[in-house]
Design a binder for these strands. Structure first.
Lengths: 181, 181
DNA sequence: GAAAATAAGTCAATATGGCTGACGTAAACG
DNA sequence: CGTTTACGTCAGCCATATTGACTTATTTTC
């Protein structure tokens, strides 16, 4: 990273702050959290990026395979709603995944206009590998942070989501867990 | 988000898991955390995206203004190292920011090949506004999570960063804090 | 002092992943 | 039968990233 003048390497929360509220140093400036989240997310998606690159896929493919794997039989419209992208953007990515045998589409039973989405075994395996990579990162992190951190992180992450979409996301996760048992 | 068949809306950590370790439900599957991080980050950057859009800027501009504001006088090479992008990618973005009076460049004192980067008052104000937006999101989150969460989140986020880059990032943050005092 | 290395900028071509608008087709709804 | 819905697709645009090659200015090295 080059050395932009190395000094003040005191890693602990904050050195010369006027924050001295008895128990815990809660005076961590938000700008630190902003930067840490930026770098953490970059490395987090980096795990998958490497793997995907070898297959000629990108992040867009990742998201599709992931959510289709978690919600087998979901409709194209549902996927669009989750990803919040346009039909046209999804189109190319979905076509590539179908062409390469990672995803398949079947007309809906009750409504044959619907193209229900499923991952093939190949797609399921890809999704599994990608989850495994990122799971490893979480495992390492919680291993360092000690017990309780996992639950705390879950609460924290959920709280960072827009309050308007939080319930939708929690519902989505709950339904996926229910399906896959 | 459409209704992909609403059922099993049990939001609590995990319903039918075999995880019954006395005290805490630490059995939160990593896939939940993966998805929560995805949605949390999307909303997190969304805050800034809206604001930037009105100025005709994108995320790339955000990152540049942010880091230059935090590290006044940093060299172009340093910025490239932090952002891990190429000189060519940075080029356009930097030019636009300079042309619009958000960033200025000055030749280095000791080495006049260097173009040291500084934000103008206008750039500083933009950086401040963007930090304020994201700070608000963190504040809301910790308000919900209760005391201690801030410190926990800081540890968690730092632990999510690649171990090889963690020290660099911590050093970067420490140096920025030291500078701005 | 000449040669080499370094910091930065730039040109050109390319890829990815978004976007809008317009239009088509099949199926369901009423 | 006409309208709406679900999906797909064509065409074009934009932002952000990439690689490779080259220039300029300056510092360092021999």
């Amino acid at each position: 990273m080059a050395d932009v003048n190395v000094s003040a390497l005191s890693v602990s929360p904050k050195a010369g702050a006027k924050n001295d509220d008895s128990q815990g140093d809660e005076g961590i400036p938000a700008v630190e959290l902003i930067e840490l989240l930026f770098f953490a997310y970059r490395d987090f998606v980096g795990d998958a990026d490497e793997h995907l690159e070898r297959l000629g896929f990108g992040r867009a493919h990742h998201r599709v395979v992931h959510f289709v794997s978690r919600h087998p039989g979901m409709r194209v419209a549902d996927l669009l709603a989750v990803l919040k992208i346009t039909k046209q953007s999804l189109g190319r990515v979905l076509r590539e995944l179908v062409d390469n045998g990672y995803v398949l589409q079947r007309a809906g039973d009750s409504d044959r206009r619907e193209r229900l989405l499923y991952v093939t075994p190949k797609g399921e395996e890809l999704a599994r590998q990608l989850v495994a990579l990122q799971t490893r990162r979480f495992a390492r992190a919680f291993n360092e942070c000690g017990p309780g951190a996992r639950l705390e992180a879950r609460k924290f992450l959920a709280s960072m989501i827009d309050s308007e979409s939080r319930e939708e996301v929690e519902g989505l996760i709950a339904r996926a867990n229910a399906k896959k048992k």
